[in-house]
Design a protein around this nucleic acid. Structure first.
Length: 974
RNA sequence: GCGGGCGUGGUGAAAUUGGUAGACACGCUAGACUUAGGAUCUAGUGCCGCAAGGUGUGAAGGUUCGAGUCCUUUCGCCCGCACCA
């Protein structure tokens, strides 16, 4: 279509003017909620990767409308976030202004692609009208506790009533620390003491706890925001620090978050990621009495069956008992070790998992069953913040304990049959137990159960389940986020009342922490309540608003409630959620947590927020790179190391140390930074291999090379060097190898993440300009399976462009002739295929089906209305503009989306089920369609009678009849 | 180490319950046409071979009349978790 620009515009204006895609809140039609993960409006705008998921979900939403559903398909912006704040710090511009500008740009870009969003319901997390309700939910969480017996959250007043009547007796509550007091003791407590106690139970609570502190960002981070010891955003080092912090008691929901995964249709990979993150492990906690002290070492173990294999105990260096039980002789050694462990950063401790280290405390525990004296060690392979911070070491059947025992020459005892435990721990959970008194001869599985019951009978422990999932740190020392609606009266945290909401962000002179390290909000002059009580200065994390925004779409304009209950009851939850898998342990877990909480408190009536979830893959960019072979290059990251001093910088073509790298980054010279980054990876790898003077490849982009050398014009093309030899390349005339000024250069293509920085971004605007929104939409779908990551290749788009042109051409000789059986068959085949493919989210194959169909119709020179009309409807989810245009061409009113989706006709498909007969061993095999209710005899008769199959059955006997589900049978004759 | 996923042409990929492997598209080759285009049309294109033919879904076995698909073993890649006891 030559004038696609006009057509796109015409129909977009029509849809907007007619509110075509507005969802109705009440309808006799069944509801269907199709949601995309709303974007963070970054300054860079959209690239072709972003709309991938939006297009898929839009196709599905349009398809569902055709199928008679009342579809809710909204869009909004996750508009609180770091980049806008960083930009504000640099320029002094208020983040709200930056954000507004970015949103405008996003909207323009989105609009051009022809989505069927209901923009009346748009939400922005940074809008006070929205975050009023984020704050309101926080307040509900603050005023709730978790009852582990009823297994739900309850109002905090009910907990207070319980304390008032019974104290902590008969209390089943999820908390930080098990407390014990009577009703009268509670009654005697003052307000401040009561507040402290209640914080131990509240679902949103403030406590002194170890947090991930990122000095560079100046804020704390949740566990999912830290990867490999550095911040996910920016890659800055993260350290552990004890701080007063707001947290969310997500750990109370660990089991329900785990169980809930069984009821939702998510990819196995994603569910597994969440299961890993929750990290359930079943076992027992066991008390070991310390010899000569009135103290117990409590351990958690998943292998109580190996309790007779315990030959030593290991405590984390930070364990409270260490100081108490260490003997005088061992004191200096232990102190030195504890101090050394404290100095190691979390990251060092994580990366260095091979070196075995530890120290003996001099103390012993008494083995509860054998009565043996078991030495207590400390070692940094035991983590303070998991389980009890102590382990019972079973070197025979745990590889870490085994390594420890070998290193310190501690005894190893075999208690499960098989293997050679002197060489290697046997940690498989199978085999028969031995050397274990009452457990002897049992299978491991049975022995675990038996051991737990004996441990419980002896009163030294209980069967227990542990979770890796930690409570989520909620406060951020940042400006651009929701203020936490809390004030302090005599140091006691209290929530604002609902009519004081929203608590809007104050104006500040700078978006940085104060000189004495207070968060930016502390800069505000009036940051207190009307009666002078100071307000909380931390803000909520990025995931606060996104944990419930999908509910706001149901009733986006509501001023009285986050959403009215009748609308929540109608829309329930999201039927289809489309988005990236990078949110597996963040957004998708927190949303489930908040949703379950809101369900507990009766605000929503579903347990899971997202029924079905599809992860779209990432669209990568293709970058061209130059390699230069450097004779000598070296890098070290630690210039104080001995190796470094042996090297003379002037011996090397390129010489980088850590300071130089930093300097380059600070200059924001992205080219050099880029080179450095690659240098760092490649060269440090070489250094680790002990090769300090090998040749290295330096990667930079072609334009970088131009800066270093002026011979770039020599390159005629960039081809893949991996596949071809130098001579071959030079013979093809496509030179990708050449020598200039004594350096050798290579060119190569690399697939990597699409990013402005690497210069491989393709802008959807350009694609829409050139080919139109419909071609762009279909091509994105045609690229490959929706869930897969794949590189963008602009060249292939012409195929789709041709398809739409061919289709339009069919309308040139539009007529009312009766279609032939072949033409009808083509149509119904396509209808069937496209229907099935959309249901299976297999959009790439449905685009193929369209192409095949049009090819066949073009061959048949078919311009028949009876064929083209349903085809137009069939196409409309994929190519809405073209479909509308063609629909009108057929003489109809606009709005093809109002039509019901075409059903295929079996009559025209049956024939296709008779396939080619296949010959083997003198027999013939073929498929044939028969009536559904026939038995074997009936089928045989039908086959013999069928003229289509007669030519294969003539003179032969039926050997085998295989009934395939449906109406197809597989016949073997011979 | 544990868990999840995946291996098919030069490329992206198809292949219903096991049934003519490579549909569709890109790219490439040749030709046609033309006011030379990022246009259109025709033919060809897994590999080996002039051909007949052979061969072919990471590898090796197995089940089956028949395996890309099911089973066993193995190799390779990607993702998640990780001194988690």
């Amino acid at each position: 279509m030559e004038n696609h620009r006009e057509i796109d515009q015409k129909w977009q204006q029509y849809w907007a003017a007619n509110n075509t895609y507005a969802a109705e809140d009440h309808s006799s039609k069944p509801k269907f909620y199709v949601l995309d993960m709303f974007p963070y409006p970054s300054g860079a705008g959209l690239h072709v990767g972003h709309p991938l998921g939006y297009i898929a979900s839009d196709i599905y939403a349009r398809y569902k409308r055709h199928k008679g559903f009342n579809v809710l398909h909204p869009m909004g912006y996750d508009s609180f976030g770091l980049p806008a704040e960083q930009y504000a710090i640099q320029t002094g511009q208020h983040p709200a202004i930056t954000t507004e500008a970015n949103i405008t740009r996003y909207r323009q870009q989105l609009d051009r692609i022809g989505f069927s969003f209901d923009w009346n319901r748009e939400v922005r997390t940074s809008d006070p009208k929205f975050y009023k309700w984020t704050q309101w939910i926080f307040i509900q969480l603050f005023h709730s506790w978790y009852d582990t017996e009823m297994d739900k959250a309850r109002p905090i007043q009910e907990l207070e009533a319980h304390f008032e009547a019974l104290g902590t007796a008969n209390l089943h509550a999820h908390c930080d620390e098990e407390l014990s007091f009577s009703a009268s003791e509670w009654q005697a407590k003052n307000e401040s003491e009561r507040s402290e106690i209640l914080l131990n139970y509240r679902l949103a609570y403030r406590s002194e706890s170890m947090v991930n502190w990122c000095p560079e960002l100046g804020t704390v981070l949740a566990n999912d925001e830290v990867k490999d010891g550095v911040s996910e955003r920016g890659g800055f080092p993260v350290i552990q620090k004890k701080m007063m912090q707001w947290s969310m008691r997500i750990s109370a929901y660990a089991e329900r978050l785990l169980q809930g995964l069984n009821d939702i249709e998510w990819s196995e990979a994603l569910k597994e990621t969440q299961r890993n993150w929750i990290g359930k492990s079943k076992g027992a906690s066991v008390q070991f009495a310390v010899d000569g002290h009135d103290a117990n070492v409590e351990v958690f173990t998943t292998r109580p069956d190996t309790i007779f294999g315990v030959t030593f105990m290991v405590l984390a260096p930070e364990h409270d008992l260490v100081d108490v039980i260490t003997t005088d002789e061992q004191r200096s050694e232990i102190d030195a070790y504890v101090e050394a462990a404290a100095r190691k950063s979390e990251r060092d401790r994580m990366t260095d998992t091979k070196t075995v280290s530890g120290a003996f405390t001099g103390a012993y525990v008494i083995h509860p069953f054998s009565g043996a004296k078991v030495p207590i060690w400390i070692g940094d392979y035991v983590l303070a913040n998991y389980g009890t911070g102590a382990v019972m070491a079973v070197p025979g059947h745990d590889s870490r304990d085994h390594a420890f025992a070998k290193h310190f020459d501690l005894p190893i005892v075999q208690v499960v049959e098989g293997g050679n435990i002197e060489e290697e721990a046997v940690d498989a959970k199978e085999g028969k137990v031995m050397n274990s008194d009452f457990l002897n001869g049992l299978e491991v599985k049975d022995a675990i159960a038996k051991a737990i019951s004996e441990i419980e009978a002896k009163g030294i422990g209980t069967g227990q389940t542990n979770y890796r999932l930690r409570d989520a740190i909620f406060g951020r020392q940042r400006y651009w986020g929701e203020p936490i609606p809390v004030y302090y009266e005599n140091g006691i945290p209290k929530t604002l009342s609902e009519d004081q909401l929203p608590l809007t962000l104050p104006e500040v002179d700078k978006y940085l922490p104060t000189e004495d390290g207070e968060p930016p909000l502390a800069r505000a002059t009036n940051w207190h309540t009307a009666d002078g009580h100071p307000l909380e200065t931390t803000t909520m994390p990025g995931w606060a608003g996104s944990s419930w925004y999908f509910l706001r779409y149901m009733d986006a304009g509501n001023k009285e409630e986050f959403a009215s209950s009748d609308k929540v009851n109608y829309w329930q939850n999201v039927d289809l959620y489309m988005g990236g898998s990078e949110h597996a342990t963040g957004h998708l877990l927190y949303s489930r947590f908040w949703h379950k909480f809101l369900a507990d408190r009766g605000f929503v009536n579903t347990q899971e927020p997202f029924q079905k979830l599809v992860n779209q893959g990432m669209i990568q960019g293709v970058s061209g790179y130059m390699y230069r072979v450097i004779k000598n290059a070296v890098l070290w990251t630690d210039s104080s190391s001995d190796d470094a001093t042996l090297l003379n910088p002037s011996d090397f073509d390129i010489f980088i140390d850590r300071d130089a790298q930093k300097a380059l980054i600070n200059k924001e010279d992205w080219i050099l930074e880029r080179i450095n980054k690659i240098f760092a990876e490649e060269i440090s790898e070489q250094l680790q291999g002990g090769q300090t003077r090998e040749e290295f490849k330096v990667i930079s982009k072609p334009q970088d090379v131009r800066i270093f050398n002026s011979f770039f014009d020599d390159i005629t093309d960039i081809v893949d060097t991996e596949k071809l030899e130098r001579e071959e390349l030079n013979n093809t005339g496509k030179r990708n190898y050449f020598i200039s000024k004594g350096s050798e250069f290579y060119a190569q293509r690399i697939v990597e993440k699409m990013s402005k920085r690497w210069g491989n971004v393709v802008n959807p605007d350009d694609m829409v300009d050139q080919y139109g929104a419909d071609v762009f939409r279909m091509y994105e779908m045609f690229l490959g399976p929706i869930e897969q990551s794949k590189p963008w290749d602009t060249k292939g788009i012409t195929g789709v462009s041709n398809f739409l042109r061919k289709l339009t051409r069919l309308f040139e000789n539009l007529n009312d002739d009766k279609p032939s059986a072949d033409e009808l068959k083509t149509l119904h085949k396509t209808i069937k295929k496209v229907n099935e493919d959309i249901e299976n989210f297999s959009f790439n194959t449905s685009v193929s089906a369209f192409m095949i169909c049009v090819n066949e119709l073009t061959d048949a020179k078919c311009g028949k209305r009876e064929i083209l009309e349903p085809l137009t409807i069939l196409l409309s989810p994929f190519a809405p503009h073209t479909a509308e245009e063609l629909w009108v061409k057929l003489g109809h009113e606009p709005s093809v989306t109002q039509q019901s989706y075409p059903e295929h006709n079996e009559e025209f498909l049956v024939e296709s089920s008779i396939e080619y007969p296949v010959q083997f061993n003198g027999k013939t095999r073929f498929n044939i369609a028969v009536a559904a209710d026939l038995d074997r005899k009936g089928i045989e008769e039908a086959v013999l009678a069928d003229e289509r199959s007669a030519k294969w059955t003539e003179g032969k006997t039926i050997r085998k009849v295989i009934v395939v589900p449906g109406r197809i049978v597989n016949i073997v004759v011979g």
